[in-house]
Design a protein around this nucleic acid. Structure first.
Lengths: 180, 180
DNA sequence: GTCTATAATTAGATAGAC
DNA sequence: GTCTATCTAATTATAGAC
C-alpha cells in the first residue's frame, strides 16, 4: 500500500483491511504509521540482501558484476515496490529518506562501486561507466518495466511478470553496462 | 504536490496554500481534485511537446534520434515531476492511468518508435535496442537522477540540477542507445 | 492479543456573504 | 471572483472491554 499510494496516501485502515486484522493492532505492534513504514522497508531490503547472500558471486570479476546485475533485475521484477518506495520518498529530503538512504541505499552503492572497480581492474573490454552512472542506471532503469507493469501492458501488450520478459530485460541491462 | 505525494497524498488545502489562494477556488476553477490533477498532467505534457515543436530535429536520422534523446533528458531535468507522476500512477491500472497513457504516453511511444526505425534504416553502426526497450530506458533511466535529486545529493554529493551534470548524464544516455 | 468504540484531526466539497 | 464557514466522511491514534 505504501508503494502504491506513498506514505501519506496509504491509510492504516486499508492496510489493516488488506491484512485482515483490526486497525488498532498496527499501533499495538508497530507503535505508529511511520514505524510500520520502516518495518516494510526493513523487510524488503532484507529480501534483497538475502538474495546476494544466498547466491554468492563466482567467476571472473566481470562475471560477478554481470551476475550481480542479473540478481538485481530479478529482485526488481519480484519486488517492484522497492523502486516505488524510492521514487515516492526521494522527491523531498525528509527524515524518512535520509533514514532509508543511510541504512540501505548507501551500503548498496558501496557494494556496486566495489564490484565495478574490480571488474575494471581486470583485463578485458573496457567498461565505460562511472559507479554513480551504473548505480543510477540499475536503480532507475532496471525496475522500470516492473514498477510500471500496468503501463507496459497497456502500451506494449506485454506482461513484465513473465519469466521470458525478465530474462530478456536482464540481458538488455547487462549489455548496457557490459557491452560485448 | 501531486508529484511529491501522489494523488491521494496531496491535499487540496496544501495545494491552495502553496498557490496562495483559497481552497474553495479549486472547485470553482477545476470542479474537483481529479480535474485539477488532469490539468497538471495536461500542462506538463504540453511543455514536453512544445519543446519538440520549438526545436524540430535536423540532420541524419541518427542525429535526429540523438537530438530527441537530448531534448528528453533536458526536459526531464527541468520537469522531474513528469517521472514522478508516471511512477505514482502506473502502479495500478486506474482510470487516471489509462487516461494519461492514451492521451500522452502512447503518442510519445509512437514517435519514439518511428525515430528509432528511421535511424535503423540508415547506414551506420547498428542500433541493438527495441522500440520498447528504448522507450522504457528513456522514461525510466533518463529522469532518475532528477526525480531523486535529494538522494543523488546525499549519496553522490552531486546536484543533478547543475547544467554540467545534465550534459554529462545526457551524453551517457545517448551513448547507451547509440554506441560509437 | 484482538476487538469495539471513539477522540481529535483532516480530507474534499459546498453554501453563501460580499 | 474570492472569501469564511461548514458539511460529511475519512484519517491516525487511543481507551478500554474481554
Amino acid at each position: 500500500m505504501f508503494a502504491l499510494h506513498g506514505f501519506e496516501g496509504a491509510s492504516t485502515r486499508d492496510i489493516a483491511r488488506r491484512a485482515d486484522v483490526n486497525q488498532g493492532l498496527i499501533t499495538y505492534y508497530f507503535g505508529s504509521k511511520e514505524a510500520l513504514w520502516k518495518a516494510c522497508v526493513d523487510q524488503v531490503f532484507a529480501r534483497l540482501f538475502d538474495r546476494y547472500v544466498a547466491a554468492p558471486p563466482t567467476g571472473t570479476q566481470r562475471e560477478q558484476l554481470r551476475a550481480a546485475i542479473r540478481t538485481f533485475v530479478q529482485f526488481a521484477a519480484e519486488n517492484p515496490e522497492v523502486h516505488r518506495f524510492m521514487i515516492h520518498e526521494a522527491g523531498a529530503n525528509t527524515p524518512r529518506l535520509r533514514w532509508m538512504l543511510k541504512r540501505y541505499v548507501a551500503p548498496l552503492f558501496s557494494l556496486t562501486r566495489e564490484l565495478l572497480e574490480r571488474a575494471r581492474a581486470e583485463r578485458g573490454p573496457s567498461i565505460a561507466i562511472s559507479p554513480e552512472q551504473l548505480f543510477t542506471l540499475l536503480v532507475g532503469a532496471a525496475p522500470q518495466p516492473f514498477a510500471t507493469a500496468a503501463a507496459a501492458r497497456q502500451l506494449f501488450g506485454v506482461d513484465p511478470r513473465d519469466a521470458a520478459f525478465v530474462d530478456t530485460w536482464s540481458a538488455f541491462v547487462e549489455r548496457l553496462v557490459l557491452p560485448g
